[in-house]
Design a binder for these strands. Structure first.
Lengths: 168, 168
DNA sequence: TAACACTTTCAGGAAGTATTGAAAGTTATG
DNA sequence: CATAACTTTCAATACTTCCTGAAAGTGTTA
């Protein structure tokens, strides 16, 4: 493999790792994702360990994490006992999976908790302002949750161009 | 202040802190934000220290952080030498500020880096697949960046209802 | 059932991140 | 200009999060 390409790949992997930590995904997990995303063939746990110089434990944990996110899947190769992993390659599908997963894991619980806080606060006079603020917040979160859910259900071409047009 | 309200406030502050760490904002910073968001009056650094039981250094650092994000502002109270802080109270404005700031700090650099990687990779045959993937990614990120920028410019009622209708 | 190939778990340690508290810096007041 | 009121900085430390590597677990083959 030529040098320039190798450098570009490494830089992308490194960068994707940085992004991961910023967005609460974990550096190593993001790096593994990057490796699988830009590689053609499915890779085994050992391949990943070698490529990134990480331990078996870490490789295993993070690969499982990525499977849970729905960003990679296990593939079975005939004649091989090892498990191999392969990334979702379509970027829009990737986006949808992340969106759906974050919605479920992080946005829906926000809604629950805000409602709980409102419940506890009750309706006494002293709580008017508190409730006002939380109501507003709840309303926006619910709307965004709904939007994200809808968008992440569709084909890219079915939705993005129309929103672009709307905002133009 | 009645107990139920106090508990609701505490729970909200605690919860907002947790959300903060999940989204890469820092627990304490998010808690301070929560305190200011649900409080009416502007608060001083000492008020914050007492309310959350944190050190002066931490209060100072995190308050500055929040000012940088544009989520709170310094206010001057006549006859007082201390600085007071007050939160943006409108939830849609909050959202827009966060969106604009993350766009600038985190999304735009992604675009630059992806382009850089593509530049390094060059146009040899071996890099076709790599480029394909990064091109796709770059395209999506650019689109989302543009969308977020547009949305975060508008009044809530000017944009959300129309997108909702579009997706209905 | 014994040896093998592979995966998962987890206690302990390394690396990274946030907080403290005291000292230095700044600005206002008499 | 000296003192007081307040803010900022930063080295040391506490905390959290992540990774390692060895051991245990699981299933397969001969």
């Amino acid at each position: 493999m030529n040098n320039a390409l190798q450098e570009a790949r490494d830089r992308f992997i490194h960068f994707w790792g940085e992004m991961g930590s910023k967005w609460g995904v974990g550096k190593t997990m993001a790096q593994i994702h990057a490796v699988l995303m830009i590689g053609e063939e499915p890779l085994s746990t050992d391949d990943i360990m070698n490529e990134l110089g990480i331990s078996r434990g870490s490789a295993n944990t993070n690969l499982r994490g990525l499977v849970d996110w729905g960003l990679i899947r296990r593939v079975f190769i005939k004649g091989e006992r090892k498990e191999y992993f392969q990334s979702e390659k379509d970027v829009w599908n990737m986006f949808c999976r992340i969106a759906r997963e974050r919605k479920k894991r992080e946005i829906e619980p926000v809604i629950d908790t805000l409602q709980e806080c409102l419940g506890i606060a009750g309706k006494e006079k002293g709580s008017v302002l508190f409730r006002e603020r939380l109501d507003q917040l709840l309303d926006l979160v619910k709307t965004l949750d709904y939007l994200l859910g809808k968008i992440a259900q569709q084909e890219r071409n079915a939705v993005i161009p129309r929103i672009l047009k709307l905002l133009a």
